[in-house]
Design a binder for these strands. Structure first.
Length: 583
DNA sequence: GCCGTTTTCGGCCCGACTGTTTTCAGTCG
């Protein structure tokens, strides 16, 4: 799929054009890049099927950019891009990652100091060469160095799941501070993005000074960047930054909307405001000088003639158009996406029978406390030696133990139940490492790829499809195999996988583990559109991981999945039937 | 360069902050 490559090229072209002070084209290229990035369908497929006109139907892509896409699909290059790069052979994306460095600064750095990449920028900053450039100064130089250091240390962004609990602690401390009235998290963390740059928190208070003083004196704060009455900014011990903003009560909704983003979503909303003769900013919606909304987000959306849009959906990738159609009564409108309390059981949990840490009984206890109606134990199987995978004999012994536990629940009139499954390995040829006779005795079977991930696309797709056609298999775990920031997804034909999943009634997993989040949002959206069933699991190897489920749910919400799409929102009876293939 | 229930020209999102050039360009969200 060449969508991402093209997105990167157009985004770079946008920056090069900004350098040349070309007006309006940069925005056009940026928009094209963004839309390509979030496009669920393979742009090459669209072209093959519908030709240039198909491409032009993609928002933000017209005659010229369509031509450039075709040029790239045919020859792997875009002349206009090569030309721009030739004039200024800099790694523009790498350099503009630096806080406060944009296209214009990149140009100045190149023209005066011949800086083309991050390394050269760092050397020049250390040699104090940057401060002498026109329009630059000591402070800018220092900030560039600081930002490079930060980037090096953290590679820019944090996995949401790695810092979420820290953020919740900060929120709860602030919430309990008596001067704080309203409080909410904002930014990408509120939208439950996979990775986040920093944390934004909004509060209202009668006494900004006391709140800000309290905030910057929190025990985990190691550095104070800003300390004002409307905005303070700090670095926490774990390495991430938190911005706290104090806003007026009547502006809380508009500020929350504004600071939650995404930027693209907000731009689209402001355009709607203009069409209606209104002005939208972080202080409210205004008709002339008169404020007509601002206290709540619902009010903001209503004033624009829109239904409330959930934060996870605010990406400007179709949610506004869909919502607009809803208000005009021409469409089903926005789906009612799954809630954070809708999951009835987690079916991908490892116990201490294989590599996991905890006894099944303890896991079940925690799950009951979480309000689950059932769980499923799905340990690794024998091919995975490193995880102490179970063989047939051990699986049957485990089955006995689980039956015993269920009998105990039944004797105590507890409705909670433990299902018994396993996470079998899909071997090179698509067969599983546990024989069918044993698999058929389990309540359900998860199959997943854990080896030879670099197969060619065709072979890998056939391998997984063969496993899906095994009548004992019910779920495919982490279907694309990606690890965020560490490993790309393996080459598969996801459309084919979806087709077969639909045909065989197999659920694809949304794995909630912070660095997996596999399927990702665009895949989820596709699966939902195709009517393929999904399941949100944690892949817990410890009871401490069970709470990761919220990241999987966030992922599902970003993919517009509803309760009916997710099989583990169903009651036990129904999910059992699904596993018996009777649904 | 894109886009169009004010369609094939003439528009294109808004405000704050930062550093520095003492009036504003560049960047960010």
């Amino acid at each position: 799929m060449k969508n991402q490559e093209l997105a990167k090229i157009f985004s770079e072209m946008s920056m090069f054009l900004k350098i040349k002070n070309v007006s309006f084209k940069p925005q056009a290229y940026e928009k094209a890049a963004l839309n390509l990035k979030s496009l669920t369908e393979d742009v090459e497929k669209i072209y093959k099927r519908e030709g240039k006109n198909g491409l032009k139907r993609i928002p933000g892509i017209g005659e010229n950019i369509a031509e450039k896409i075709i040029e790239y699909l045919k020859g792997g290059k875009i002349k206009a891009y090569e030309k721009l790069k030739q004039k200024m052979p800099v790694k523009i994306q790498e350099l503009t990652q630096i806080e406060s460095v944009g296209p214009k600064m990149v140009a100045a750095l190149y023209q005066h100091l011949a800086i083309t990449n991050l390394k050269e920028l760092e050397v020049a900053a250390r040699q104090k060469k940057i401060r002498n450039l026109p329009n630059f100064g000591v402070k800018t130089e220092e900030n560039i160095l600081k930002s490079i250091m930060f980037l090096k240390r953290n590679k820019g962004r944090f996995l949401l799941g790695h810092i979420y609990s820290r953020v919740e602690e900060i929120l709860s401390l602030l919430k309990n501070f008596k001067e704080v009235k309203k409080i909410s998290i904002a930014g990408s963390a509120r939208r439950m993005k996979e990775t986040i740059g920093d944390i934004d928190i909004l509060v209202t208070t009668e006494n900004p000074k006391k709140v800000m003083d309290y905030f910057i004196s929190l025990p985990e704060v190691i550095k104070i960047w800003d300390h004002g009455l409307t905005k303070s900014s700090v670095r926490m011990r774990d390495g991430f930054d938190v911005d706290l903003r104090v806003v007026k009560d009547r502006e809380f909704g508009s500020a929350l909307q504004y600071f939650t983003g995404s930027k693209e979503h907000n731009i689209a909303l402001r355009k709607i405001a203009i069409e209606k003769g209104l002005k939208l900013n972080e202080y409210g919606i205004f008709k002339g000088k008169k404020r007509i909304a601002g206290k709540t987000e619902e009010e903001i959306y209503a004033a624009l003639g829109l239904p409330y849009i959930e934060p996870e959906m605010r990406t400007n990738t179709g949610e506004i158009e869909t919502a607009l159609r809803q208000t005009r009564g021409k469409h089903n409108g926005l789906p009612k996406i799954i809630n954070y309390n809708s999951i009835k059981g987690d079916l991908h949990i490892h116990s201490n029978w294989n590599g996991g840490e905890d006894f099944i009984k303890e896991i079940a206890k925690v799950a009951q406390d979480m309000g689950y109606e059932y769980i499923g134990i799905s340990d690794h199987t024998k091919f995975l030696r490193i995880e102490h995978g179970l063989n047939e004999k051990q699986l049957l012994a485990q089955h006995k133990e689980i039956r015993k536990l269920n009998r105990e629940y039944s004797m105590h009139n507890t409705e909670f139940r433990i299902l018994h499954g396993c996470e079998a390995n899909i071997l090179e040829d698509g067969t599983l490492d546990i024989n069918d006779k044993v698999l058929s005795q389990l309540d359900y079977v998860i199959a997943g790829v854990h080896s030879q991930m670099k197969m060619p696309k065709k072979q890998m797709t056939e391998r997984i499809i063969r496993a899906m056609r095994n009548p004992n298999v019910d779920i495919i775990s982490h279907p694309t195999g990606r690890l965020i920031k560490r490993r790309d997804e393996y080459a598969i034909d996801f459309d084919k996988i979806l087709e077969v999943a639909k045909e065989t009634n197999i659920a694809l997993e949304i794995n909630s583990f912070p660095d997996r989040l596999d399927l990702k949002d665009t895949n989820i959206k596709k699966a939902v559109e195709q009517g393929v069933k999904l399941i949100i699991n944690t892949d817990s190897h410890s009871i401490n991981h069970l709470g990761f489920i919220k990241f999987g749910i966030g992922q599902a919400r970003r993919g517009w999945a509803t309760k009916k799409d997710i099989i583990n929102t169903w009651p036990l009876k129904k999910i059992k039937k699904f596993f018996e293939k009777k649904v």
